[in-house]
């Protein structure tokens, strides 16, 4: 009984890691743009497709396919960032919703047109199970956990010490003041956006071997799982996102075990409703930042 609970918590942490890497990109983009990026899951999908293409068509190894997945997403994110996201600075919230929803449809359907709507099969990755602390886990999941920790340590350091990180925080606090003191706001927006999209792609590439199926619509569910996490974590809050993702991952895992798998997605949406009712500014902030 006790070991079952521990095992389910471990499962939840692994699931939480996947969510965390995707969600942190979305929350950072929200920070600088004040816009929910509804196309965020599509970058997760693009990364996965890039890697799948590299393995299936180019015959590359899984390690090389990670690079291909990331690079192809960065290119797309650069174009989208230049053409669309930079124009969102100072635009009303509706514009952001419409633009990112539109981009989601365009990206999704382009991929379906090019590669077809059927499910693809991702081969590659470290899928052999390893035994850790008495639990059986695929090597790939341990990789995801480690990468997640590294990503968050890296991001913490970046937003605290680097010039770009400090500019991001500045832009998320006050756009007008940034312009006054000479911070290049569109550039910060573009960089944040590319970083966020690349993190989503990284999450996609890392989970592809354990999720096996690759298809055009796979990003949608990820976008909707991410929403409650970034709200729970406090919009724009990197550290908060990490803990929120872990909480959601563990809660989902326990619900799937003790209530029923069919109620799993309910957890995220119920959390979203409760958060918006009682703490719309997140679990870890005492007041609204925006």
């Amino acid at each position: 009984m006790f070991s079952t609970i521990i095992e389910q918590i471990v499962n939840g942490i692994v699931t939480g890691s996947v969510y965390a890497i995707v969600a942190v990109g979305m929350t950072m983009i929200f920070g600088v743009l004040r816009a929910i990026n509804f196309a965020h899951g599509e970058y997760y999908m693009l990364g996965t497709f890039g890697a799948w293409f590299a393995v299936d068509y180019l015959g590359l190894s899984y390690e090389a396919s990670i690079i291909v997945g990331l690079l192809s997403t960065i290119v797309v994110a650069y174009v989208v960032g230049r053409l669309v996201m930079q124009r969102m600075v100072g635009a009303p919230a509706e514009a952001g919703v419409l633009a990112t929803l539109g981009i989601a449809l365009v990206l999704q359907n382009t991929v379906i047109l090019v590669f077809g709507g059927g499910y693809k099969f991702f081969s590659g990755g470290y899928i052999e199970p390893l035994s850790v602390l008495g639990f059986s886990l695929a090597g790939q999941r341990i990789l995801i956990l480690v990468v997640c920790l590294l990503v968050f340590i890296g991001l913490e350091l970046m937003v605290t010490y680097s010039r770009m990180g400090k500019s991001m925080r500045a832009v998320s606090q006050n756009v007008e003041c940034c312009e006054v003191v000479g911070i290049d706001v569109p550039k910060v927006v573009l960089h944040t956006f590319i970083l966020g999209a690349a993190l989503a792609a990284l999450s996609g590439v890392l989970t592809a071997p354990v999720n096996v199926s690759v298809y055009g619509g796979m990003g949608e569910l990820i976008t909707f799982k991410t929403l409650p996490i970034i709200i729970m974590g406090g919009l724009g809050n990197v550290r908060g996102t990490f803990f929120a993702a872990m909480i959601l991952g563990i809660a989902e895992s326990l619900v799937a075990t003790y209530v029923g798998l069919q109620f799993r997605d309910t957890v995220g949406f119920a959390t979203l409703i409760l958060m918006l009712m009682w703490r719309p500014y997140g679990l870890f902030s005492t007041q609204a930042r925006f």
Binding site: Q8, N11, E220
Partner: peptide, 20 residues
């Protein structure tokens, strides 16, 4: 007895329960 939603990718919890 469990039912999964279309698009579900994480079955570890439920499979652990089935194993036990």
């Amino acid at each position: 007895e469990d039912y999964y939603k279309e698009g579900e990718v994480d079955f570890r919890s439920v499979l652990a329960k089935i194993r036990d």
